[in-house]
Amino acid sequence: MDFISPEGLRLDGRRPFELRQLHAEIGVLDNADGSATFEMGNTKVIAVVYGPREVQNRSQQQLDHALVRCEYSMATFSTGDRRRRGKGDRRGTELSLVIRQTMEAAILTNLLPRSQIDIFVQVLQADGGTRACCINAAALALADAGIPMRDLVASCSAGYLNSTPLLDLNYLEDSGGGPDLTVALFSKLDKVTLLQMDAKVPLDVFEKVMNLASEGAKAVTQFLREILMENTKKLAFAKEPLKV
């Protein structure tokens, strides 16, 4: 199947180095300490943070740092064919673990000893790049909850089809058989916190795809910062009207 037309356009009309349209909203659920929705094209994820709160299970309490827990769930209507997923399925467990480890690296857990931070990620629509979308939504929700972090984590995926590196794969491109690489970065500190890839690739191809995904993640970081600034300014103006 041709994933890139002779004019250089992908199946959804994008260029190979183009990200899908990003959209985010902060503070969507009042009950939680922090919440955010994040959309990358048609992939829609909502992330919610409860915490810091007292540890529910005493045996798991850590004396010198916070306990970070994460659960990933997919809605039954999120994929093309409706699938009823049990809670303990392997992909869900793996993604919960991956998101938890990524966010744990970002949170300054030693500032909140003996407490627990719960991150719940719910996928409303899956169209490729779900992993990256979840991490971005979780980062915004944590910032909304005021949990101290080293840096904002941003994530993006990339692949390689028809001999071209492609940024931000959608579901069709993801099932195209090429490699699927997801990277998450601390942008200001310039450190990689998550790197996952499936499939076999020669090393030079890997380098190209990895660099492309990193550039994508940096662009996402820019977007995250803008959204956070805008949201904070809105809250500030709501508290105190502008003094003219």
């Binding site: 970002a106 500032l111 101290p148 080293r150 601390f186 942008s187 200001k188």
Partner: peptide, 29 residues
Amino acid sequence: TPGEVLGWASEYVAGPGTYVWHEKVYASV
């Protein structure tokens, strides 16, 4: 936003909402 450099740790005392790493003060919230 979190991760932005605010200054040198030798010039400022890190208050709430910041942390120190490698002699620089960064924002954490």
